[in-house]
Amino acid sequence: MADLDEIIHQPLRLRIMAALNALPATTGLEFARLKKLTGATDGNLGAHIETLAKAGYVSVEKAFVGKKPQTTVTATAAGRGAFARHVATLQEIIIAGKPQA
């Protein structure tokens, strides 16, 4: 059985990756929308996005829409792959934990 990805396994990072992975490949989520979807606070979300970005799992794009700064977070191909492997490992753990017939 493969090991769990420690970067993704943290609950909030798992939710962030789940949200980004549910979108089409090149589509990202705005920071405010991601905050609402994951139920995180500003500071907490920012810190965990940074961790994911350092691991190369997400890309962060900052732009100005009018005069307002807008941060968009997108899952990278590496991030999507890591998330898929993490989910597969979780499923393996569940199957392994079931009583055998």
Partner: peptide
């Protein structure tokens, strides 16, 4: 953890 993922995916959809 999988339930948590499903919950977020539903919210995104």
């Amino acid at each position: 953890a999988l339930d948590d993922i499903n919950d977020v995916v539903q919210r995104v959809r």
